[in-house]
Write a protein that binds this DNA or RNA. Structure first.
Length: 650
RNA sequence: GCCACAAUAGCUCAGUUGGUAGAGUAACGCAUUCGUAACGCGUAGGUCGCGAGUUCAAGUCUCGCUUGUGGCUCCA
């Protein structure tokens, strides 16, 4: 007999060799039906794998990430099995479970492509295999056996993976005629899967290396109930409605023109209004944090980027230098603001008393992003960073870092960005030659970031090898409507540029010292931030940002003149007003659609005109009754003012 | 840049096996007019992304390009 301990610390005794599934059965039939995987002494196991010794166990269901993971991982195998039947000779790469579903990278062979139109056939084959209720069987095999097995089947991708594994740790999972190299865990059989959907096909380089063959990545998702699949697909449809590209067009916020060029956004009047309010908001905060605003040109002599080191690294992938009438003279569009700010630093000799020096600029930069990378406002070729560079002493780094984190928190709170993730990007210790700067400086910078996060109680994921070539960074990531992660706020420590630009300050010891530079952009870029803001709010902006704050509706043509006068008065006071004077030509349903993104609606009829009043409805339909038009304006301006003015001491 | 898919009126989309280009909505005009659940009549709007090819005939088939979309790689 062995002792099995449960999450609630209760202990039961079972026969040696019992499985998690049998344990579940001993508790309740319902549980046995729902359990998908089990955590055994902290390791995730198949539920039909015999347990030989005293263990701590947790039964994992669909609601548990590990349960879902096993479920989707088995689904990936199921799709692979279906593909193997439909495309003889197909070779397999890797096929993991992901956040929503799973994928499998496959090489269907020379000249064979798997297209969207083939998806139904794949789905049907999967359903067929499910109906067979095939057992999924785990097997330990030796490295040489594994190599033999997969070599015989020409599975060169798998053989490559096996070669990197240690003998004695290799397992395979089989179902029907399909056997895959796999660590598991998996479902006991294929019949657990009830609803399948192949979602998309995409190219993916083998092992993420663009110099290696490109495989076909098939994305799919499965569910234990048909209804869950339907709901998921509906959710995706709903999410599409929040797409910033769609809303940006509908609300006339921004546009693109092929004549201007791909990836170069045109900010329309309403979008500009929104963006300017955000800039004003950040300027106000920065003022309180003692930043100084600067302005620099959009181009610079190529030499500036040779000095900064950027030309060597990015020169050939950038917008190419432009020539001048002077032979040999070349200028570049600026891809970042840092070198310009370094030059500002150097204009006058600096003392330790000047530090920290915080230079801020809404700086527009141009980067030649790969054509396939461009995406709405989130990835463009010309964009404006809410940039600032903090020049400080090494001792001030941590303190300044913490203050920047505060600014980012203030912004995310004011705009209700709750689900952000923080990521600390450090260098890859295996590949130090990829980075510029001394070991000592890197270690200092990296520990400053890690400590600062700890002090702020900010749970941050640490990623090795994700650092910029000049220094480590802390990024804030936010998800878009369909769950893609985008980097917004960023704080980067840089010991490199001060070195290259030979920046100095005179210390209290009357000696020259090198300052440290912190790059930071709380929004990241205005373009990307606005994009994510649109997706988070679905275009229903808080009143201080709303491109249109008030819409005036005269109920009849007779009152159009009054409405027009009122609108002019409001606009002069700085309220953003629109008139809908189509009167009753337009039905309420249309108006509701049109108005759902506008905070206030003012209805003008006979009574209102007589008394110089407005009947106010709030976004969503709440009736606030009638009031003097001047009172409404005063209240609105006061409300906006309060939202714009953040007191950092609170 | 690579893989897959797409492109028809300002917007959302239909257009069968190749046979002269359609709807809704928005815009404009006339008529109507008091708290909105699409008033009526009318007008205008398209080189079917661009360029070749096949054909008596191409929105539809083939090829190339452009732009967009979902991924991969990249992201100073």
């Amino acid at each position: 007999m062995i002792k099995i301990k449960f999450p609630d610390d209760s202990v039961r005794e079972y026969e040696q060799g019992i499985t998690a599934l049998q344990i579940a059965e001993s508790i309740s039939q319902r549980l046995a039906q729902e359990v998908l995987a089990a955590s055994v002494n902290g390791e995730t196991w198949d539920i039909n794998r015999p347990i030989q010794e005293n263990s701590t166990i947790q039964l994992l269901k669909w609601e548990d990430d590990e349960g879902k993971h096993a479920y989707w991982h088995s689904s990936a195998h199921l799709m692979a099995e279906a593909l193997q039947e439909l495309y003889p000779g197909i070779k397999f790469g890797i096929g993991p479970a992901i956040e929503n579903g799973f994928y499998y990278d496959v090489d269907p062979g020379e000249g064979v492509t798997i297209k969207e139109s083939d998806f139904p056939a794949i789905e049907n084959k999967m359903m067929e295999l499910i109906a067979k209720k095939e057992e999924i069987i785990r097997q330990d095999i030796s490295k040489s056996e594994a190599i033999d097995m997969f070599s015989n089947r020409n599975e060169n991708y798998k053989v490559e993976l096996i070669n990197e594994l240690e003998d004695g740790t290799i397992t395979t999972y089989s179902q029907g005629n399909f056997t895959d190299l796999c660590r598991g865990p998996h479902l006991p059989n294929t019949s657990y899967i009830k609803a399948v959907k192949v979602l998309s096909a995409a190219g993916a380089y083998w092992r993420g290396d663009e110099h290696r063959p490109q495989l076909t990545r098939l994305y799919g998702i499965t569910f234990p109930k048909k209804k869950l699949l339907t709901e998921y697909l509906e959710l995706l449809e709903e999410a599409k409605k929040r797409d910033h590209r769609k809303i940006g067009k509908e609300l006339e916020l921004f546009a693109f023109s092929q004549n201007v060029g791909v990836g170069l956004p045109l900010w329309l009047p309403k979008g500009t209004q929104l963006r300017l309010k955000l800039e004003e908001f950040l300027k106000h905060i920065q003022q309180q944090f003692e930043y100084q605003q600067v302005m620099t040109p959009h181009i610079a002599n190529k030499q500036l980027y040779i000095t900064s080191g950027h030309y060597a690294k990015y020169g050939k992938d950038s917008f190419q230098p432009m020539k001048t009438p002077v032979e040999g003279e070349e200028f570049m569009l600026k891809p970042m603001n840092c070198p310009h700010h370094c030059e500002i630093y150097k204009v006058i000799p600096r003392s330790y008393k000047d530090l920290p020096l915080r230079l801020a600029e809404f700086g527009t930069v141009y980067r030649y992003e790969q054509s396939g990378e461009l995406h709405g406002l989130t990835r463009v070729r010309g964009f404006t960073q809410d940039d600032a560079h903090i020049f400080c002493t090494p001792d001030q780094v941590k303190g300044e870092f913490l203050k920047v984190v505060d600014i980012i928190f203030i912004i995310f709170k004011a705009l209700d960005f709750k689900n952000f993730e923080a990521q600390i990007s450090l260098r890859d210790p295996e590949n130090k030659e990829k980075y510029i700067g001394s070991d000592e400086n890197w270690n200092k910078a990296e520990s400053a970031i890690v400590e600062a996060c700890k002090e702020k109680g900010l749970p941050a994921k640490v990623e090795l090898g994700e650092a910029a070539f000049y220094g480590p960074k802390l990024d804030f990531m936010v998800k878009d409507a369909i769950g893609r992660r985008w980097q917004l706020g960023t704080i980067q420590v840089d010991y490199n540029l001060p070195e290259r630009f030979e920046l100095e300050y005179t210390g209290a010891d009357n000696q020259k010292h090198r300052p440290v530079m912190i790059h930071r952009a709380p929004f990241g870029s205005m373009e990307r931030f606005v994009a994510l803001l649109i997706e988070h709010t679905a275009g229903k902006f808080p009143i201080w940002l709303a491109p249109t704050q008030v819409i005036i509706l005269p109920v009849s043509e007779k009152f159009n003149d009054f409405a027009n006068e009122l609108s002019k008065t409001y606009i002069r006071q700085g309220i953003r007003v629109e008139i809908d004077d189509r009167n009753e030509k337009v039905g309420r349903k249309i108006r509701d659609n049109e108005l759902k993104r506008i905070p206030y609606m003012l209805i003008i009829g006979e009574k209102e005109v007589e008394n110089n009043e407005v009947s106010v409805r709030k976004q969503g339909g709440e009736d606030l009754g009638t009031m003097k038009s001047t009172i409404f304006a005063e209240n609105l301006l006061k409300e906006v003012d309060e939202m714009m003015t953040i007191d950092i001491n609170k």
